Computed example of a mutant assay.
Amino acid sequence: MKFLRYILFPIVPVYFIITWFRNKLYDYNIKVSKTYNLPIICVGNLSVGGTGKTPMIEYLISSLKNDYKIATLSRGYKRSTTGFQLANLSSTASSIGDEPFQFYCKFKDDIYVAVDSNRQNGIAALLDLNIKPEVILLDDAYQHRKVNAGFNILLTTYNRLYFKDIVLPTGDLREPKSGANRADVIIVTKCPEGISNLDKELITKQIKPNINQSVFFSSIVYSDTVFSENSSKKITDLKPFTLVTGIANASPLVEFLKTKGLQFTHQNFPDHYNFKVEDVLRLEKNDLIITTEKDFMRLKDFEKLKHKLFYLPITVKLDNAEQFNNLLKQFVKP
């Protein structure tokens, strides 16, 4: 795969020009972004792959849900349905996508969870509800410039910083690095625990934020407990198990489990993998399966796995959280 990326390098300038030109059309209002009269917060990235959008959306939900009626709007990647879908009791990971289904399972009593590949259409449908949302969170919509989000949060991972990368197909960037200029906040995610102030200062200098941009650093916090649909186990009590992942980058999770001295084998699947019956037949031979919360949403309905399937939750720990929350509230406050 890496070799193929290298031989496709001549396409890089073409991709760069196309995406750069598209952005300029929006920058100069030749193509028009639609603005709305309610707070819309966009969480996204410049690169493909996992940068921690899902835990960041959950952080925002937790921060705002007690004071505002929140709606999340996602594309619903790899879902079996089309058009606008509002999550309800009959929704599944297949019908609305694994990440939106995760939001719904965790926060269904507090928020709306919707999917629509056309974000303008999705927002219009949300605003047609009898009880309208007061804040909309756009998941993975940084390049969806048909909507003018009032507050853009750009995520970049500590181990794959966007300013060290190039655009597709040789690199991982969806658009040129200059796209970072649209962000109100840039968050360096998945930082090592105890990242030094010197390291943060160096990265911030390399980012070169504009005067109106703030840079924050976050890390992943793993729970000390794994959960099934009706039980839980302390990590320290886990017997040898099989780790099953279908996420963009499982390395941080694998390293965390190793630091705990746990014995496990790892079965790694592609990101957003749709598990098949034959996969389940192989997995059911294991006595204990640990997976991510996102993968749990796609596996939990397989009856043969219910008694042995557990997930490990994660949360985001944000440095200077008070400063970030103040910026957030200043934007959302009417």
Rank of each mutant, 00 (worst) to 15 (best):
L127C: 05
K106A: 10
A124G: 14
A87E: 06
S95A: 09
I136N: 00
K108Q: 14
I136R: 00
S117E: 15
I131A: 13
Q85M: 09
N121I: 06
K65E: 12
Y112Q: 09
A87I: 04
F103C: 09
A87D: 04
L129N: 12
D67F: 12
N66V: 07
L64H: 00
G122A: 12
V115T: 05
L86N: 02
D128S: 15
K69G: 03
E99H: 00
I70M: 09
Q85P: 11
K106H: 10
L126D: 04
F103V: 09
S63H: 02
N121K: 10
T81L: 03
A114E: 04
A93Q: 06
F84Q: 08
S74D: 04
D98R: 03
N66H: 13
I96S: 04
N121Y: 08
T81K: 01
D67T: 13
R79D: 05
I123N: 02
Y104K: 04
T82D: 15
D116E: 14
S117W: 08
L126M: 09
Y77M: 13
K106M: 08
A124K: 15
V135Y: 00
Y112W: 06
S95G: 05
N118D: 15
R79Y: 06
R79N: 01
S62E: 15
F103R: 12
F107C: 08
S63Q: 09
G76C: 05
V135Q: 06
I70E: 02
D110N: 08
N88W: 04
K132G: 14
D67P: 01
K106S: 11
Q120C: 10
E99A: 01
L89Q: 14
L89C: 12
D110A: 02
V135G: 00
K65R: 12
P100D: 07
G83W: 12
R75C: 02
L129H: 07
E134H: 05
R75M: 07
G76S: 07
D98S: 05
A114M: 07
I123S: 01
F101Q: 04
K106P: 10
D128C: 11
F101H: 08
D109K: 06
S95L: 06
E134K: 05
F84S: 09
Q120G: 02
R79Q: 06
E99G: 00
D109Q: 11
Y68N: 03
K108V: 08
I136Y: 00
I123M: 08
A125P: 00
N118L: 06
L86G: 01
Q85D: 07
K78R: 12
P100T: 08
Y68D: 06
L126F: 10
S90E: 14
L89N: 14
A124D: 15
L73M: 11
L127F: 00
F84V: 10
Q85H: 08
F103T: 05
I96C: 07
S74Q: 03
A71P: 15
L64T: 07
I123P: 03
S63A: 15
A93G: 13
Y77S: 12
A87C: 12
